[in-house]
Amino acid sequence: MQRVNMIMAESPGLITICLLGYLLSAECTVFLDHENANKILNRPKRYNSGKLEEFVQGNLERECMEEKCSFEEAREVFENTERTTEFWKQYVDGDQCESNPCLNGGSCKDDINSYECWCPFGFEGKNCELDVTCNIKNGRCEQFCKNSADNKVVCSCTEGYRLAENQKSCEPAVPFPCGRVSVSQTSKLTRAETVFPDVDYVNSTEAETILDNITQSTQSFNDFTRVVGGEDAKPGQFPWQVVLNGKVDAFCGGSIVNEKWIVTAAHCVETGVKITVVAGEHNIEETEHTEQKRNVIRIIPHHNYNAAINKYNHDIALLELDEPLVLNSYVTPICIADKEYTNIFLKFGSGYVSGWGRVFHKGRSALVLQYLRVPLVDRATCLRSTKFTIYNNMFCAGFHEGGRDSCQGDSGGPHVTEVEGTSFLTGIISWGEECAMKGKYGIYTKVSRYVNWIKEKTKLT
Rank of each mutant, 00 (worst) to 15 (best):
T194K: 11
G122H: 09
F360W: 14
V202I: 11
D111E: 04
T264V: 04
G236W: 05
S354I: 15
D249Q: 05
R162K: 08
N310P: 03
E418I: 09
E61K: 05
L346K: 03
L376T: 14
D93G: 14
C69S: 15
C157F: 00
K362P: 07
N59D: 11
A317S: 03
T386D: 13
F399A: 04
P172V: 07
C141H: 00
T445L: 05
R83I: 11
Q219D: 04
G21A: 12
N452P: 14
K152L: 11
T194M: 10
D95C: 10
K362A: 12
V263N: 00
L327R: 04
I344C: 10
I256S: 00
V77E: 09
I262W: 00
K459C: 14
K339N: 10
A436S: 07
I214A: 11
Y441M: 11
Y441R: 04
G432P: 13
V326F: 08
L163I: 05
E86L: 09
C128K: 04
G105Q: 09
D315F: 01
I112S: 15
A9H: 08
L211Q: 06
R62G: 06
G363Y: 09
E259H: 06
V228H: 11
I262D: 00
D131N: 14
G442R: 15
E193R: 05
N306R: 10
E231D: 09
N80I: 03
R43H: 04
H361Y: 07
V416K: 00
N283D: 11
Q370D: 04
K362L: 11
L60S: 15
V331K: 00
V174M: 08
Y115W: 14
T209K: 11
E281I: 10
T417K: 01
Y352W: 04
F71V: 15
H303I: 06
D93H: 09
Q57S: 06
V92I: 09
G272S: 08
E116T: 10
G179H: 01
V243K: 09
I275F: 11
V92D: 08
L52E: 12
P375R: 11
R358P: 05
I454K: 02
N104D: 03
V56L: 04
V4R: 10
A308E: 12
K440Y: 14
E53K: 09
V199P: 09
I15E: 01
S329R: 14
K126W: 08
V419A: 07
S187V: 10
G413E: 02
K152F: 09
P375V: 05
L41R: 15
P414D: 04
G160P: 01
K274T: 11
S156G: 04
N80C: 06
T276K: 08
D322N: 13
F388W: 09
V368P: 09
A337R: 01
F424Q: 01
M65H: 10
L319R: 01
N38G: 11
K293G: 03
E10S: 14
N295L: 06
G402A: 14
I256L: 04
M6F: 13
G58P: 15
K188D: 08
S184M: 06
F196S: 10
A366I: 13
V183F: 07
D378V: 04
Q57C: 06
E116D: 10
H282W: 11
N343R: 08
Y22I: 15
T84F: 07
G439M: 04
I256R: 00
D95F: 14
F71W: 12
N166W: 01
H400L: 12
V368I: 15
K362C: 04
D93E: 04
I454F: 01
V451L: 03
N138L: 11
I40Q: 15
I334P: 00
G442S: 04
R298I: 01
A37E: 15
L19R: 02
I297P: 01
K293H: 10
C141E: 00
S385F: 15
P301A: 08
L52Y: 09
L52T: 15
V368D: 09
S99L: 12
I15P: 03
G439Q: 04
H400I: 14
D198I: 06
V195M: 12
T290G: 10
F424R: 00
C97M: 02
N343D: 15
